[in-house]
């Protein structure tokens, strides 16, 4: 197997990267493109800290082969701030203290975005379910669930998008 060139769109920008065989999307995003909001808490698919959107779907970038992202539209947490303004979902995380060390936060926000994109008015149980692939060791989850509830509420109040 040889190194290979792939093209993909990341946060709206076209990228061409050379990947090694078996490189993961996480490697490409974190190491090649230096999008360091993409974290690597386990590399085993068990923590959700590497969550990104691939063509709008929530994906664990550590379990996604980079090759599979050829031609895809990838969004990382950095991609939410294209205009540099903080988006309501992020604001809800801030207001609800939904982070302490912040290591899980990027993955949490992306999982929450994926949920709200698909279901703008989730119940508490649906939020819990939507975040069930993401671990947090600091906050006890309650503030995170509240943040997503608040973001959903803000969505329904303004009719805006989460992010």
């Amino acid at each position: 197997m040889e190194d290979k060139l792939i093209r993909l769109t990341v946060n709206g920008r076209d990228e061409a990267v050379i990947i090694q065989p078996l490189a993961t999307l996480q490697d490409v995003l974190r190491d090649t493109l230096e999008l360091t909001a993409v974290k690597s808490g386990c590399g085993q698919g068990g923590c959700g800290s590497c969550s990104v959107l691939v063509d709008g779907e929530l994906r664990l970038s550590c379990l996604t082969l980079a090759e599979r992202a050829e031609g895809a539209e990838v969004t990382t947490l950095e991609g939410l701030n294209a205009t540099n303004a903080i988006v309501p979902l992020q604001q809800a995380f801030v207001e609800n203290y939904a982070a302490q060390c912040g290591y899980c936060t990027a993955g949490m926000v992306m999982a929450a975005k994926a949920l709200l994109d698909r279901n703008p008015a989730p119940s508490r149980d649906e939020i819990v379910e939507g975040l069930s692939g993401n671990l947090c060791r600091c906050t006890g989850f309650a503030p995170i669930v509240r943040a997503v509830q608040q973001a959903a509420q803000a969505l329904s109040d303004t009719g805006e998008e989460a992010s």
Binding site: T36, L77, E78, F93, V94, A99, G102, V109
Partner: peptide
Amino acid sequence: DLESHARGQTTY
């Protein structure tokens, strides 16, 4: 640090 966490700007 919360806003920086929420934006993914915190440097580890």
